[in-house]
Simulated scan of single mutants.
Amino acid sequence: MLAAIKDFFYRHRRKLITTGVLLGGGLFLIKLIQYKLREFQERQAREIAERFKRMKHFESTERTCNQTIVGLSENVSEKALRDLSTADILEKLRSNPDNKFELWEELKILAFAKIVTLVYASSMLALTLKTQINLLGGYMYKDTVPRDTQTTYLSMIQYFMGEGLDKLMDVVRNNVTIVMQRYSLKQPLTLADTETLFWSIQMSLNNDELNPVKCLAKFTLPQDGLQGDGNSDLTLRKMCDETLDVLESAEATDVCLSNVSSGFSSIVDKLAEYYAEAEATQLAPSTSKSALNVDCLSNINNIKISLAKLIPIVNGLTAKPLGKSAATNGLQNGFEKQRNDMMSSLIVRFMQSEKLKTLGINVYETFCA
């Protein structure tokens, strides 16, 4: 019996060895597949957890960024409206002085310089802070940044709140003066003419040596740099250099230019309401309200308002609330204290820009990787 078994194994030894190897190899392969599958699942779980963690951190960074933009926009608006104030000129005009023409010419420059400054300032503020806070957020996601370094880095925007904004107002006022010299106070303007006027100011600024769009960093960042203490020096300098690189990039220039153009479109849309009102006063009182609206819309491109009458309208856009739309949009985005003045309306509009949102995401992803 034993001899027969031994003889069987001897005769079939190759088959048995092959079968054993195949069985062993199969078991090993199954174990290996199970191990690789478990490793893949664990890696996937870690990546999902990491993405979720990054997403939550980015959302927190964005909330901080938006709140900071909204908070500082009030200071920027107050300074611009104070330094380009028309109150003294209006007060003098009420007394019917001999130099009335010169005062109207000055009012013409200030009224347009003021609203143009708000458009550029709000775009530059939103873009710079979106870059800074997302860059800092990316750094903080992957490593600890000393609080002193954070404070010093974020304090760079204070330059724009003072000297940078003064420089912007000078550049804007100079270019507005050049463009407005082509327009007389009695010149009648259609809505399209008014849009062309704003476009001409924008083109004049685009051709300026200190074009605020292309030279954004010269207005919003201190030119002499910032210094930190101890080991934070290298990190701070690196963050400053990288911020400068982003603000001077083609993407940032495109975002700023897009926001400025959007801001002027918003102003023209607002002025269209006044053109429609001017047309409505010329229609017969017996005209029905629905017919009145249709006529106003159909004839709006033919309506003309003299520049002298347009100046107080433009000046008024920066001096009074714009209605509930801006405040409502602000509340929908979590800005409970959002005001409904021109600067706030522009800030909300720009923060809803997909281009600005994409820039913020790209900056954050680049520096947290």
Rank of each mutant, 00 (worst) to 15 (best):
G162P: 00
N66R: 13
S204D: 06
R63H: 07
K36A: 06
G137I: 04
E42G: 01
F350L: 09
G225K: 08
R82Q: 11
K355W: 06
A49Y: 08
D98E: 09
F9D: 05
M55W: 10
M239V: 02
R11K: 12
D166P: 03
S155A: 13
K337A: 06
L191W: 03
A3W: 05
I89P: 00
D83T: 10
N96K: 12
N362M: 15
G26S: 11
A3K: 08
Y364P: 00
L185E: 03
S85C: 05
G316A: 15
C240P: 00
R147A: 03
M169H: 02
T194P: 06
G228H: 06
I30G: 15
D88S: 10
L205P: 01
L356V: 00
L210M: 15
M140E: 14
L331H: 11
Q187E: 07
I201S: 03
I157N: 14
S266A: 08
K186F: 00
P321C: 04
F160I: 01
T196G: 01
D98A: 12
K320E: 14
C368V: 03
V213R: 00
V116H: 02
V119Q: 08
L27R: 10
M1W: 06
D233W: 03
Q158G: 12
I313V: 15
Q187A: 01
G334F: 05
R173G: 01
C65K: 09
L23W: 12
E62T: 06
T128N: 10
L81S: 04
R182T: 07
S95V: 12
T243N: 04
A319Q: 15
R43E: 15
L129D: 02
K31C: 07
E251A: 12
Q150R: 14
V172H: 01
L90H: 14
M203Q: 13
F160W: 04
V70C: 05
R43N: 13
A126M: 04
S85Q: 04
T68A: 14
A80Y: 04
L310R: 02
K214Y: 11
T358V: 09
F112W: 04
S325H: 12
I178V: 14
D254T: 05
N96S: 07
Y120K: 01
D233K: 04
